[in-house]
Simulated assay, not measured.
Amino acid sequence: MAKFLPLKQAVAENLHDGDTVAFEGFTHLIPTAAAHEAIRQGFRDLTLVRMTPDLIYDQMIGMGMAKKVIFSYAGNPGVGLLRRLRDAVENNWPNAIEIEEHSHAAMANAYEAGAAGLPCAIFRGYRGAGLADVNPNIRSVVCPFTGEVLAAVPSVRPDVTFIHAQKANKKGDVLVEGIVGIQKEAVLAAKRAVVTVEEVVEDFAGLHPNVTVLPSWTVTAISVVPGGSHPSYTHGYFDRDNAAYLEWDEIAAERDRFADWMKKNVMESTPEDFERRVAHLRRARS
């Protein structure tokens, strides 16, 4: 059952060195505040899993936290490449990392298989694609009923998944609205799940039938962090901060500038500082 905890405690109790961890969000509800707290706590040897890794994985890789990344498409949305990821792959800075690249379809199916407790995902995909030539975890199986050759990849079952959401009620259920991506499956596939939310309410009312509600028994810990997905957006609360993504491309381009930014905005910061900085940026750019 979900416990309401300060973010620092929620991260410390649920993430450990060597874990396989997913900080999931698909352009929307990206758990930035949780990732920053993980960076402050200095975890190492992590296997980072994510559909579309963006700024937070660039930051975690640049801070030397990752030993491996399992992903589909890595980039700074609408801007270009992830410079810290590229530096790690090409120059082993700050350390060498292993990469396992998949298609979006493969990652989505792998999470779904993990949520179902299955060892692998089987689906139609990778026909005519070259990823299988460089990724030994992309294999094929023959359907025992039709003889069709299908793609197979290992299921994704993180030790812990972090997501951001709009609301939790006092019972510990979590409401996710808007573009959900693969967050629901990433939570259900994980041994532990930590959710940051904009607010806690007495209960949910007037819900659209297509919203996602994660019941409290699927969540380990909930932390209230308004603005916790910035610079991505939270549907119904604030818009995407496009300027921050453009700025990150310049910040991440140089190792020293990256290190200075991380020291000022993450390492010497707190979740409360994060909230104040996001609120200030939103006012300044409105």
Rank of each mutant, 00 (worst) to 15 (best):
M267H: 07
G114L: 15
G80A: 07
F71R: 14
V187K: 03
L246V: 05
G25T: 07
V225K: 02
T47F: 11
G172R: 06
L150E: 04
N265S: 10
F162S: 02
H208W: 06
F71A: 15
V225M: 08
V11D: 14
L214M: 11
A12M: 14
P158E: 00
V141P: 06
A189V: 08
T52V: 09
I97W: 14
S103H: 11
G80S: 01
V278E: 09
A110T: 01
G18V: 06
H28N: 14
T234M: 13
G178N: 06
A129C: 12
L15I: 14
A12K: 15
G181V: 03
C143T: 07
F123P: 04
N169T: 05
A132Q: 08
H102P: 04
A284Y: 10
I163K: 11
Y73Q: 11
D241A: 11
E90Y: 03
A152V: 12
T52M: 15
A151G: 07
L5K: 12
S229K: 00
R282P: 07
D45N: 14
L29H: 14
S223D: 01
A106N: 11
R257I: 04
E268Y: 13
L85H: 07
R127A: 05
A205L: 02
G178P: 11
R192S: 05
K8L: 06
R277N: 13
E177R: 13
A193Y: 05
E37P: 15
K68C: 14
E198A: 04
G206L: 03
G130R: 06
E199R: 02
Y233W: 05
V160S: 06
R192W: 12
G117H: 04
A244Y: 08
N169F: 02
I61H: 02
P215E: 01
G181Y: 03
V187F: 08
R257V: 08
G227V: 09
A252I: 00
A252E: 01
W217M: 00
R282N: 06
F43V: 10
T196D: 03
V160W: 09
R277I: 11
D19W: 02
S72G: 14
A110E: 09
A152L: 09
